[in-house]
Amino acid sequence: MKILLIAFTLIITGCSTIKSSDSLYTVYSKYTAAATNDNNYIKYFNETITSKVSENNASQLLFHQYMVKEKEHFTKINDNIGCLTVNGVNKSGGPIAFYLKYEFINNQWLISDIDVSFLENVELYRNAALCPDESRVE
């Protein structure tokens, strides 16, 4: 009984670690590190994105290059969908934000949608996570 309880606790802890908000930012950090070092960064994106990649548009996956300095980040998770907002500074010194959507597939969070927003001023930094759909002009 005791062993079962320990196993159950480990499973629950394991799941909550994998699906915690921090893991969205961890995936983003791993992606930026891999993309900067030209390693295999495509593994951090889901099929919605990878199926669209071609020789002509692959540079779009290097969107992290738009931001030269990170300021802060926010996450939100609703079941198997998560969103991460990263606020920072762009190459010209202006405010910029990344709004990323994630899907939890095969026990891992994968980036499924990206909006890069050039903000008019620093007052427009959001201090909560926003999904790309919420940031775009439709």
Partner: peptide
């Protein structure tokens, strides 16, 4: 104005006046 340019993979949004 606020604008979104949808490329093939990512979108780029900007605002200004």
């Amino acid at each position: 104005y606020k604008a979104t340019f949808s490329l093939e993979i990512i979108s780029l949004s900007i605002g200004g006046s």
